[in-house]
């Protein structure tokens, strides 16, 4: 360190005007991350949650593993529990009444000041380190190498349900008609593979809760919402270490 300083001291001051925007952001992020750690860990840290989706810090520090890297950001404070997303999902993906691919959870705090209820939509988190795929004995469920969606190869599913027990997000159920486990695939089989660029739940949502897109594309909304510092972005059950691709946030103006 001393050697570096002595090497640098005779050099001219470059001035702050020469520091790039990216470098400034990195510096700010580092500061905020340190603050977050002292405030009680990364969960309440105001840094971007994007690092949580990288399968390993070294391998994916500068790039996303999938192209497109499908992701969804959920603006929980906009959700009104109209369940149109659930209806659209059922219709699009032939989900039976005993199962669900997406659901809206209700959190109530009667003595809270102001808003007393909150709705939390949940679905498969399309994890970068999916435990379901690791535990499946026959590779019936797998992480697609192109788009990163956790897919089901129904003909290989033996119905042991280990994937469901390995999933920290309760995202799977056994479909008696398919004779296989069923789960959210971001409507890949029905819509995305046919050229559509949105999921049925996102399209059906009247409150702009579900924003679907490519996390690797700087022009996409999901990219802009996740790669920023002003608003908190978090993932569910981060301790599971599965690097989910579903992000949660609050307080964004309608756009």
């Amino acid at each position: 360190m001393k050697k570096n300083i002595s090497n640098l001291s005779p050099a001219d001051n470059e001035g702050t005007e020469n520091i790039s925007v990216d470098e400034r952001r990195e510096f700010l992020k580092m500061g905020l991350a340190i603050t977050g750690v002292f405030c009680g860990g990364t969960i309440i840290s105001a840094t971007s949650a994007v690092s949580r989706v990288f399968a390993s810090a070294g391998a994916y520090a500068d790039k996303y593993p999938y192209k497109p890297h499908y992701s969804m950001v959920l603006q929980v404070d906009f959700c009104i529990d109209c369940e149109l997303c659930m209806e659209a999902c059922v219709e699009t993906n032939s989900v039976p009444d005993y199962g669900w691919r997406t659901k809206i959870l209700e959190y109530e705090k009667p003595h809270a000041i102001g808003v007393k209820r909150e709705f939390i939509p949940i679905l498969c988190n399309q994890c970068n380190l999916p435990q379901c795929a690791r535990v499946c004995p026959t590779r019936a469920t797998y992480k697609d190498r192109t788009h990163g969606i956790v897919m089901m190869d129904r003909k290989k599913c033996i119905g042991c349900m280990t994937c469901q027990l390995g999933c920290p997000y309760n995202a799977r159920y056994f479909n008696e008609v398919f004779h296989a486990v069923d789960k959210c695939d971001f409507c890949y089989k029905v819509r995305l593979s046919a050229g559509d660029n949105n999921t049925s739940c996102s399209e059906a949502c009247p409150a702009d809760v579900r924003i679907f897109g490519d996390l690797a594309d700087p022009r996409s909304r999901v990219y802009r919402m996740v790669h920023q510092l002003e608003k908190a972005v978090w993932v569910m059950r981060p301790k599971s270490g599965t690097k989910p691709n579903i992000f949660y946030t609050k307080g964004w103006p309608l756009s």
């Binding site: 690791r134 535990v135 499946c136 004995p137 026959t138 590779r139 019936a140 003909k155 290989k156 599913c157 033996i158 119905g159 042991c160 349900m161 280990t162 056994f174 004779h179 296989a180």
Partner: peptide, 26 residues
């Protein structure tokens, strides 16, 4: 207990997942 046991006999052999403890156990 397995919901589709006949698939187990086929795909445990032709599509094994070596990271799966249930595959090793079986």
């Amino acid at each position: 207990e397995i919901k589709v046991p006949w698939r187990m006999l086929i795909y445990n052999v032709i599509s094994p997942n070596l990271t799966s403890n249930i595959w090793w156990m079986g």
